[in-house]
Design a binder for these strands. Structure first.
Lengths: 223, 223
DNA sequence: TTGCGTTTCAAACAATTGTATGAAACTATT
DNA sequence: AATAGTTTCATACAATTGTTTGAAACGCAA
């Protein structure tokens, strides 16, 4: 079976194109052109377009989750079994942010592909995506150990918001740059990570000095 | 020109279907079936599929922005010209959250359509979307007036994160419910809004007591 | 070299897409 | 009622999609 060059050429090309332009407007013909292989090769090696996407997603999903867990474990080891909440969230959002942001040249199609996948919900991916929940539970559990006094609900919200900030930053990095006239530096990945983590942690650790619902102004019609 | 029933039937059907299933897998034939009109009616009334989408998006975009600004102005009036930061962010994320969450029956296709539009970047929408930046600038300006001591960069990040939490909550509401075993109540819209606003405001108002970058644990390989 | 399994290729396939056509049906003014 | 303008309809069209086919090319053990 040689070196699987054709197979991997397809995978690489597909990932690159999907990451760039999204699933809906990349055709098999686009992929085989990019990969310099024959049209029929996709169906020969993968069976169908959906199976190609699924294979890509599964592979990358596993790798991303592994990296996240590696960093989580490392943080737990460094803390003698109990990781700091900052480190936990950093392990959650760091890998994907590092892959998607930073100077143009070092951005990986890998990470951007994963973001696409988490957004444009195409059937073959939707089926797999449910397993991610189990993965997130591990982080929820770690957070619980780090902040045993926080309510479980608040922890889930914190986890959820951390992912929200990370993903949204990746998706809308261009808009944020434009909005801030370039003042927000999306190339300084570690700063972005710090901001995301800090935002999420603050929400988790700051006891409500003010009542939960802020002053009753607005929200109803004026005056 | 009668009552435009056909035209509006198409708009309603299209919005409903797009909101539900996304742009990529809703065809004109799906739309006309849902609207009970003839296939050719779309091209007759709108010119093309893209123009139909564009019209939908423009209309809804204007309405959403108007509602946001209305709430912002109301908050400013209530505060004697200077709105509270909570109220500003509430005006930003409230309208879309109220439209997308809450008990099934009262969720509007309108708001969900807008979320789809902000995600699945289809050409006719991408062209229009740039104008949203001007709209966001108004909120940034209001935030600056509310928190004159904060750095501009931090304010942009705060605005950005508020939108992040709102949008992500809408998109991933199902996952959050599953992850938390139903403990996070996505039907209590006002609570969700309060959480989002509180999270964003905390990031803006809490002075860094700890250094910006938390303890140097983890992030590098273990030990 | 022969033969056999694997891989590549050009071509064709059926299905689906958005769009166009031209006749019919309708509406309302004269 | 007759006419002109608008709207609807069934149908057809061209383009694009993922997939299949069967023959050619290749790799390699015998």
């Amino acid at each position: 079976m040689a070196t699987d060059q054709t197979r991997t050429a397809i995978l690489i090309a597909a990932e690159r194109l999907y990451a760039e332009r999204g699933f809906s407007d990349v055709t098999l013909r686009d992929i085989v052109a990019e990969a310099n292989v024959n049209l029929a090769a996709v169906n020969y090696h993968f069976g169908s377009k959906d199976e190609l996407i699924a294979e890509l997603f599964v592979t990358r999903s596993i790798a991303l989750n592994r990296e996240r867990l590696r960093e989580l474990r490392a943080a737990e080891d460094a803390g003698g079994g109990r990781a700091d909440i900052h480190a936990i969230l950093r392990a959650l959002v760091g890998p994907i942010l590092r892959g998607c942001l930073g100077p143009e040249n070092q951005r990986s199609a890998v990470a951007r592909f994963m973001i696409r996948a988490s957004i444009e919900s195409v059937p073959p991916i939707r089926r797999i995506k449910n397993k991610e929940i189990d993965h997130l539970r591990k982080f929820a559990a770690a957070m619980q150990r780090a902040l045993p006094d926080s309510s479980e609900v608040d922890l889930f919200w914190g986890l959820h918001f951390a992912l929200a900030m990370a993903h949204h930053t990746i998706r809308e990095s261009e808009r944020l740059t434009k909005l801030s006239d370039g003042q927000c530096d999306l190339d300084d990945v570690e700063d972005v990570i710090a901001r995301v983590v800090r935002g999420a942690v603050l929400g988790l650790t700051t006891r409500d000095q003010a009542a939960k619902s802020p002053p009753k102004v607005a929200a109803r019609e004026a005056r």
